[in-house]
Amino acid sequence: MSHHILELKDVYFSYPDGTEALKGISFRILHGESVGLTGANGAGKTTLLMNLNGQLFPTKGLVSIGEIPLNKNTRQEIKRKVGFVFQRANDQLFMPTVYEDVAFGPVNLGLTPEQVDERVTNALETVGCLHLIHRPPHRLSEGQKNAVAIATVMAMNPDILVMDEPASNLDPKSRRQLINLLKGFAHTKIIASHDLDLILDVCERCIIIKDGRIAADGPAEEILLNKTLLEENNLELPLSRQKR
């Protein structure tokens, strides 16, 4: 068994209107690795993420999860392996109550009602939201919504957790809770964010994207403290490392 779980080989992607969003991206991610993905607005982070679970398909190049190449036939299988947490929790929580939302994935996997119940309970316990199980989403706080959104994905038992800007709407306390939660997961994680402190806290590796290409790839401690590299990419030092 090989140790990489996700591999991209020279991936290109263009939108139907001709915009080239990805121009030859290659990297490998190993089992249990946490990778932060950052870059200026419009650099191609979200497009890249969407190419990881078949929301989009590369126009050229190859994405494979484990040993499985991503294509239209393997899409369903890949979706089960790659848990995708969307940027806006409101878009992720579309069912009438927390229970039904977390159960949505397991039900679609064809599990029995007992198995579904077990998955829901476990997932909500993991994110510390079991007490919210009967609430409708519009009666949750932003922090609770984010946590439940993560639970909806955890209930699918994914191999890889992909997150797009997980902390963008959160107040400092909820953000800290989220960081602690993420640190506790043993999953392979890919987190796209502008919140470099979050990446520094959660991820050991960091990739910077610029104009659809990889501008830097290496240990997070190294990359996120390289002031010139960051400034070239419209980024700045994590707040915790800025001298005042």
Binding site: N53, R80, A103, N108, V153
Partner: peptide, 15 residues
């Protein structure tokens, strides 16, 4: 997309 990512295939269960 969020629905598809969680295995949606046209069926929604009403609890």
């Amino acid at each position: 997309q969020a629905m598809l990512s969680r295995g949606f295939r046209g069926e929604i269960k009403v609890l």
